[in-house]
Amino acid sequence: GIDPFTGEAIAKFNFNGDTQVEMSFRKGERITLLRQVDENWYEGRIPGTSRQGIFPITYVDVIKRPL
């Protein structure tokens, strides 16, 4: 089901994660935001896939912030 505490964002740019914990994505992908890790990073996942990880806040347009 849908978790009411998650947020939502759209990727503004392609992001290629450097490490296992970073999640790569392509511009235009819809991302579920799980939490804000710190002032620069979100943790999120791509709905319908097993992809999950952290990524820079500046790479996405936030539609709804996670609670």
Rank of each mutant, 00 (worst) to 15 (best):
K27I: 11
Y59M: 11
D18Q: 15
A9L: 05
D61T: 14
Y59N: 04
R51W: 03
R26P: 02
T6G: 10
D3V: 13
P56Y: 02
F15G: 00
E29S: 02
K64E: 10
N40H: 13
R65K: 15
L34N: 04
E29A: 03
T32G: 05
N14R: 06
A11C: 04
S50A: 11
G44D: 00
D61W: 14
T32Q: 11
Q52D: 03
I31G: 00
D61L: 13
A9F: 04
E22I: 06
L34M: 09
F13T: 10
R45E: 07
A11H: 01
T49L: 03
V60C: 06
P4I: 14
T6Y: 15
F13V: 09
G17I: 04
Q52V: 09
I54R: 09
N16S: 11
T6P: 14
F13D: 11
E8C: 14
V21A: 15
W41Q: 06
K12M: 10
T58Q: 13
Y42D: 00
G17M: 04
R26D: 09
P56A: 02
P66E: 06
V62L: 08
Y59K: 06
E43Y: 14
N14S: 10
I54T: 07
R51Y: 04
L67S: 14
G1Y: 08
R45Y: 14
K27A: 12
D3G: 12
I63C: 08
Q36K: 11
G28Y: 05
Y59D: 03
V60S: 01
I31Y: 00
I63Q: 07
D18T: 15
G48C: 09
L33G: 04
R30S: 08
R35S: 08
I46C: 03
K12I: 13
T19W: 06
V21P: 10
F13W: 11
I2M: 14
N14C: 07
D3S: 13
M23D: 01
V62Q: 04
T19H: 11
E43G: 03
F55I: 08
G17V: 04
E43A: 07
N14Q: 08
I10C: 07
S50M: 12
I54G: 01
R26S: 13
R65N: 12
R26K: 14
E43R: 04
R51G: 01
G44P: 01
G48H: 08
L33I: 14
T6I: 13
S24D: 07
G1K: 07
M23P: 00
N40D: 12
L34R: 03
L33M: 06
E8L: 15
G44Q: 00
F13I: 09
R51D: 02
R51I: 05
R35L: 07
I54Q: 06
G44Y: 01
G53K: 01
D3A: 11
N40V: 14
G17S: 08
I2H: 14
G53P: 01
G53L: 01
P66M: 04
N16M: 11
G7I: 10
Y42W: 15
R65P: 15
S50E: 14
I63F: 07
V37M: 08
D38R: 08
I57C: 09
I46K: 02
T58C: 14
G44C: 01
M23K: 00
T32M: 11
V37L: 12
R35M: 07
V37A: 04
G48N: 10
E29K: 01
R65D: 12
V21Q: 15
F5S: 12
G7F: 11
P56V: 03
T58I: 14
V37P: 03
I54M: 09
W41M: 08
G28M: 03
G7R: 09
T6V: 14
A9I: 04
V60N: 00
R65A: 15
E43W: 12
E39M: 10
G28S: 04
E8A: 09
E29T: 05
F13S: 08
V21I: 12
G53E: 00
P47K: 10
D61K: 11
T49Q: 05
R65L: 15
D3W: 12
P66W: 03
F13P: 00
A9V: 07
L67K: 04
L34E: 04
F25N: 00
L33A: 03
L33C: 07
T32E: 15
R35I: 06
R51M: 05
G44H: 01
T49E: 06
S50T: 13
R30K: 11
L67Y: 07
K27Y: 06
T49S: 09
D3K: 11
P47D: 15
M23E: 00
I31N: 00
F5Q: 15
I54E: 02
K12D: 02
I63K: 06
D3M: 12
I31P: 00
P66F: 03
G53N: 01
R30P: 06
Q52R: 11
Q52F: 11
L34S: 04
A11R: 00
P66I: 06
E39A: 12
V60I: 08
L67V: 13
P4Q: 14
P47S: 10
R51V: 05
R51S: 03
P4Y: 15
I57S: 08
V21C: 15
D61P: 00
L67E: 14
I46R: 01
F5A: 12
V37S: 03
I10H: 04
Q36T: 06
A11V: 02
Y42L: 10
R30W: 09
N16L: 10
F15N: 02
D38F: 08
D18R: 15
T49G: 07
E29I: 02
I2A: 15
N14A: 08
Y42C: 07
D38S: 11
R26H: 11
V37N: 02
F55A: 00
I10W: 06
V62A: 04
E39R: 09
I57A: 12
G17A: 13
R51F: 04
T19V: 07
I46A: 02
R65I: 13
K64W: 07
K27W: 05
F5P: 10
E22T: 08
A9H: 02
K12Q: 06
K12S: 06
G7D: 09
D18F: 13
K64Y: 09
R26N: 10
I10A: 03
N14I: 04
L33F: 04
G1E: 12
F55H: 00
R35T: 06
Y59P: 00
E43C: 11
P56E: 03
A11D: 00
D38M: 08
D3T: 12
L33S: 03
M23H: 01
P56K: 04
L34G: 04
G48Q: 07
S50Q: 11
Q52E: 08
S50P: 10
P66N: 04
K64H: 08
G1D: 12
E29F: 02
I57D: 04
L67A: 15
F13C: 14
L67P: 15
E22W: 06
R65G: 12
R65V: 14
I2L: 13
E43F: 14
F13Q: 13
M23N: 00
F5E: 11
N16A: 10
R30E: 06
W41F: 09
D3H: 12
N16D: 14
I2T: 14
F55N: 00
A11T: 03
V21H: 14
V60L: 05
K12E: 03
G7K: 09
E29P: 00
L67W: 06
P66S: 04
V62P: 05
Y42H: 04
G44L: 01
K64V: 09
F5K: 11
V62N: 03
W41I: 06
D61M: 11
N40R: 10
P56F: 02
L34Y: 06
R51Q: 04
N40C: 14
G7Q: 10
F5H: 14
P4A: 15
R51L: 04
P4C: 15
V62K: 04
R45S: 11
N40T: 14
V62M: 08
I10E: 05
R65Q: 15
T32V: 13
K12W: 04
K64M: 08
R26V: 15
S24T: 09
P47G: 08
G28L: 03
G1Q: 12
P66T: 04
T32F: 08
G44S: 00
P56S: 02
N16Q: 12
A11L: 02
T6Q: 13
D18G: 14
Y59F: 11
I31E: 00
G17R: 05
T58M: 13
I2S: 15
T32L: 12
L34A: 03
Q52L: 06
K12A: 07
P47V: 11
T19M: 09
E43L: 13
G53W: 01
T6M: 13
G44R: 00
D18Y: 14
T49K: 04
A9K: 01
A11S: 05
I2G: 15
D3Q: 12
G48A: 06
E22H: 14
G53I: 01
W41E: 02
Q36S: 07
F13G: 07
D38T: 08
R26L: 14
L33E: 05
F25W: 02
N40M: 13
N14W: 05
E39Q: 09
T19Y: 07
I57G: 09
K27T: 08
Y42M: 10
L33H: 05
F5T: 13
F25H: 02
F13R: 13
I63H: 06
V21F: 15
G48L: 07
E39L: 09
E43D: 06
Y42G: 04
I46T: 01
P4K: 14
L33T: 02
T32H: 09
R45G: 05
F25R: 00
I31R: 00
F13A: 12
T6A: 14
N40W: 13
D38A: 08
I63M: 08
L33N: 05
D18K: 15
A11G: 08
I54V: 09
A11Q: 00
D61E: 13
F15T: 01
D38W: 07
